[in-house]
Computed example of a mutant assay.
Amino acid sequence: MKHILLSTILCFSLSAFATTKEEVQQKTSDAAAAAVDYSKEQKEQFQKDMDAKLAELKQEITALKKSASEKTGDAKKEMKEQIKALEAQQDELKKDLAKLKKSSGKAWTEMKTGMSKAWDALSSSYAKAKEEFKESK
């Protein structure tokens, strides 16, 4: 967002050097296009990062499942319940990511904030579950 504002300010500053109306319009158009490109790049990078995090988490949940399969009794039951809850959170995040990929402009910025919070919650839940599994060994 700061870059968009900076681009706009720069555009208006450059317009002072422009000598014709057409030059001012072109410089304004160029600055707007640069802001859109930058926002698109940010969105794409965020999507790639989130895809990578979800893939890594999937592998970690698979490892937890293997660990749970080696348990017995209440420990096994509790681990399976926590894994099920983690997978549900992960599925919701995947759905949000699919929506984010289709969003644009202000909507994507708002979704990014929501997804970041959801990722933090999922990460925290995973860390807590993992720690509890270590304790139940």
Rank of each mutant, 00 (worst) to 15 (best):
L86A: 00
K76S: 07
Q26C: 06
A32M: 08
E92L: 07
K112S: 04
V24D: 00
F46W: 13
K106W: 03
A33V: 07
E81G: 02
A129Y: 02
K58R: 12
T113Y: 05
A129W: 00
Q42Y: 01
K101F: 00
L93T: 04
E78C: 07
A68Q: 00
S7P: 00
L6A: 15
A63F: 09
E92S: 13
A85Q: 12
E132N: 07
L54K: 06
L122F: 01
K21T: 11
Q47R: 11
E81A: 08
G105K: 06
Q82H: 09
D30I: 04
G114F: 02
S123Y: 07
K27E: 08
K84C: 02
S13H: 02
Q42S: 05
E81S: 05
S69Q: 12
D91T: 10
T113V: 08
K2S: 12
M79D: 03
E110D: 10
Q25N: 06
L5I: 14
D74N: 13
A34S: 09
A127T: 09
G73L: 01
G73V: 06
A98N: 14
M50T: 12
K40H: 07
E23G: 07
E23F: 09
E135G: 00
K2Q: 13
C11Y: 04
M111Y: 02
E60A: 14
T28F: 09
E70S: 13
A34D: 08
G73E: 00
K40P: 02
A18S: 14
D49M: 14
K2Y: 11
C11V: 05
K112Q: 05
Q47L: 10
K48I: 09
L10T: 12
D96L: 12
E44T: 15
L122C: 04
H3P: 04
E44R: 14
L6H: 03
I9A: 14
F12T: 04
A98G: 06
I4M: 12
Y126E: 01
K27S: 13
Q26A: 15
E78S: 14
W108K: 09
A98E: 15
D30C: 07
E132C: 02
Q26K: 14
A63G: 03
S69P: 01
A98L: 12
F133Q: 10
A63E: 12
A52Q: 14
A32H: 02
K21F: 14
S136I: 04
K102C: 06
K84F: 10
S69N: 15
K137H: 13
A107S: 15
A18R: 08
K21I: 11
I61C: 06
A121P: 01
K117G: 03
K43Q: 15
W108Y: 12
L93Y: 01
C11I: 03
A98H: 08
V24E: 09
T113L: 11
G73K: 08
L10R: 13
D37N: 15
Q59S: 14
K21L: 11
K99S: 07
V24W: 02
Q89L: 09
L86H: 04
S29M: 10
K66R: 07
E110Q: 10
A68R: 05
L54D: 08
S29H: 12
Q89M: 01
A55R: 00
E132I: 02
S13A: 15
D51H: 15
Q89D: 10
S116C: 06
M1I: 12
I61R: 01
A52P: 00
D74W: 11
D74P: 03
K84I: 01
K117F: 03
Q26S: 09
F46P: 01
K66P: 06
F17I: 13
